[in-house]
Amino acid sequence: MAARMFLRQRAAPVATGALIAGIALFPKTSLQAEAPDSRKPIYDDFESTPTPPTPTLPSSEPTRTPTKSTSPTPTDRLAVQIGKTRLFLQAHVAAAEEKVNQFMDSALHLEESFTSTIASLAPSPQSGEKLMPGSLYVLVAAMTGSIVSRNRNIFLRATVPVAVGIGAGWVVLPVTMRNVSDLIWKYEQRFPAVADGHVRAREGVERAWRMARIHTQQVVNVVDEKVGAARGGVEDWVKKGK
C-alpha cells in the first residue's frame, strides 16, 4: 500500500513534464496538402477537341397540346344570365326615367304656356283699362240679357246673354276683348276648316252690319226729308192762315 502511493507520487511529475514537452514540440502551423500541378505536360502533342453536338431535326408530328373543355360551367351560365338581367333592367329603368322627364317637361311647358297666355290677355298699363270694374259690368250685362230673354224660347235664352255680354265687353273692355279675339284666332288657325268658317261668318256679320248702317242711313234720310217736307207744309199753312 505504501509502495503504491509512492509510485503515484513519482509518476505525477513525470507525466507533467511529458505534457509540457509535447506542447512545446507540437507544430503551430497546420500542414497543407499539395495543390495539384496545373502545368501542361511537354509530351502532349495535341489537346482532345470536344465533339460538337449533332443537331436534332424537329419531329414532323405536331405536338399535341392538351385540349380544355369549352362547355361553360354553371357559374359562367349564371354570370351570363345575371348580366342579361342587369342590362334588361337598366334599359327599362332608363326608358321609364326618360318618360318621366318628358312628362315633367311637358307639364312645366304647359304651365308656362298657360300663365303666359293669361298674362297676355290683360291690358297694358298704358291703355288705362281696368279689369275689375269692367268685368263686373260685363257680368251684369250678361245677367240682364238672361233676365230679358227668360220668357222666350230656348235659342234666345242661350244666345241673348252671350251676345249682350260680348257686346258689353267690346264696349267696356275693348283692349282685353281684342287680346281674347287674337288668341281665339291663333288657336283657330290650327284647324283650317274652323278658321275658314270663322272668316266667312265674320265677313257676313260685317256685311250685314254695313248694309244695316246703309239702310238705317237711308231711312234716316227719308224720314228727315218727310219731316222737312211736313214742317215746310205746316209753316206754309201757318203763313197762309195769317
Rank of each mutant, 00 (worst) to 15 (best):
V205E: 04
E98M: 03
S113T: 14
L183Q: 04
S146C: 09
A2L: 10
V100K: 04
Q32F: 15
K68C: 07
V100G: 03
I166E: 04
A119H: 03
T56C: 05
P36M: 07
P72C: 12
T70S: 13
A11W: 07
T117Q: 01
H215N: 10
P125A: 04
K84S: 04
P174H: 07
R10P: 03
I184N: 05
E61C: 02
A11Y: 05
P55S: 09
L173Q: 13
T216N: 14
F103C: 01
K28C: 10
G145L: 00
V148G: 00
I20M: 03
G232E: 11
R213W: 05
V164S: 05
S59E: 01
Q102S: 06
R210D: 07
A122E: 07
A96K: 02
K242G: 15
T117D: 04
P123H: 04
M177H: 00
P55Q: 07
W170D: 02
W209F: 07
L89R: 09
P55N: 08
L78H: 06
Q102P: 04
I42A: 12
V171T: 06
A12V: 08
T16A: 14
R39N: 11
A158H: 13
E129M: 01
S59W: 10
L131M: 14
Q217V: 00
A94E: 03
P192D: 08
Q102M: 07
G241A: 14
P58M: 03
V138I: 15
I154Q: 14
S149W: 11
R150W: 09
E235D: 12
F26R: 03
A193L: 14
V194C: 09
A168M: 14
Y137P: 00
L19I: 06
T216K: 11
P50N: 08
A158C: 08
N179E: 02
L110Q: 14
V160Q: 01
A96I: 02
F114A: 15
A33M: 09
S116K: 09
E129I: 04
R207N: 10
F191I: 07
P62V: 00
V180K: 02
E98V: 00
V175F: 08
I214S: 07
Y137C: 12
L19R: 12
P27A: 01
A91H: 08
A212N: 12
P52E: 03
V162R: 10
L131C: 01
P62D: 06
D76F: 13
R152F: 15
D105Y: 08
